[in-house]
């Protein structure tokens, strides 16, 4: 009988990163930890990180189930490959963290739910002004030639958030989450007391709480019109809403230290809702339309029109996680 292989004392916890339908900003956040990323690298063993390391899918498949302490997955799920990877990482990880707005709520890619797969393919490959595609060549999932074949992941009709595909343990909100938030989250996850499953790892109050402009919002604020940031010179100290600029701070979770208002831009809602709200866009809409100053239905209509693109404004990051999820498809389309 041979001796069992010596098990190394206190092996470093394994950590994985993956990106689905994403812009790469969440990977940047890891790098934005600056020199602290070295502390992370020292404390953990990164076993998968497509943007930075050369591990392949089969390396992940080879790991025992549940052997990865934490998998951080960013991006929304809109292709078959992303769905497969989500399931795979769920299997291999003890704790699955939805990193960023796209994974938590569906994110900007989620706005594709206003269209359809057919519509997106048409506009991207045919109709957009900079496309020249007279033969109407479209991507396909399988292409065979000379006895060989290549495949592409399939594109779903509907963009989904991560928890609409797999069970998610924690959420790190933001587009992207701030380095500070990520740093705090890593410490929490490496610590001994894990928060309840489903916790969003950020404060549970709205942004106004930590916004430096908070005191300048009057108690009775009413407006006759809303302005877009490009249309006005925004004063650097006054509450955005008080200046008529649509700011979703009141409906958005805090934790980002109000970076956008500090950069003289209004909050667009990337941290999503507090835990007490089910549909973010509905509350964002409430926060804005409650400021309208008029009793006349016609005038109210005019003021409401000064917010162009309401879905884009109120559901910019959260359409897939909303109650309606997506625009109703035309009857002919299939799911």
């Amino acid at each position: 009988m041979t001796e069992p292989a010596a098990v190394p004392k206190n092996p470093k916890p394994k950590v994985a990163f993956y990106w689905c339908a994403s812009c790469g900003g969440c990977e940047e956040t890891v790098l934005d930890l600056d020199e602290r990323v070295l502390d992370v690298v020292v404390a953990v063993n990164i076993v998968f990180w497509p943007v930075a390391l050369d591990f392949k899918r089969h390396h992940v498949e080879a790991l025992p189930d549940g052997s990865v302490l934490a998998a951080f997955v960013n991006g929304a799920v809109r292709t078959t490959e992303q769905q497969e990877m989500a399931h795979l990482l769920r299997k291999k990880a003890k704790v699955l963290v939805a990193l960023g707005s796209c994974a938590q709520l569906g994110g900007i890619p989620g706005l594709a739910n206003l269209s359809s797969r057919e519509g997106i393919l048409q506009s991207s490959y045919c109709e957009s002004p900079s496309t020249v595609n007279p033969e109407k060549v479209f991507p396909q999932t399988l292409y065979k030639e000379n006895g060989q074949s290549v495949s592409l992941p399939g594109l779903f009709e509907t963009v989904r958030s991560l928890d609409q595909v797999v069970d998610v343990d924690y959420y790190l909100p933001g587009c992207p989450p701030t380095p500070k938030l990520l740093w705090d989250a890593v410490h929490v996850l490496l610590g001994s007391e894990l928060p309840p499953k489903g916790t969003v790892l950020a404060p549970d109050r709205a942004l106004c709480e930590e916004c430096p402009r908070k005191d300048t919002r009057p108690e009775k604020l009413t407006l006759k019109e809303f302005k877009r940031p490009q249309d006005v010179l925004i004063d650097e100290e006054t509450c955005m809403l008080a200046q008529g600029v649509v700011c979703l701070g009141p409906a958005t979770r805090s934790g980002c230290e109000a970076l956008c208002p500090q950069g003289n831009m209004p909050c667009t809602g990337c941290f999503g809702p507090t835990s007490r709200v089910r549909d973010y866009g509905a509350k964002a809409l409430s926060a804005i339309s409650s400021i309208i100053d008029s009793n006349d239905p016609e005038e109210i209509e005019k003021i409401v029109q000064t917010v162009p693109d309401p879905v884009g404004t109120f559901y910019r990051y959260s359409l897939p996680s909303s109650l309606l999820r997506r625009r109703k498809l035309a009857p002919a389309a299939k799911l």
Binding site: R205, K214, R276
Partner: peptide, 23 residues
Amino acid sequence: ILEEECSGCKTCIPLCPYSAITF
């Protein structure tokens, strides 16, 4: 009001028809 959760955004203050909310 859940005092711990209120962010002080003041959205509610002018909406009360009975002036029951103060900041």
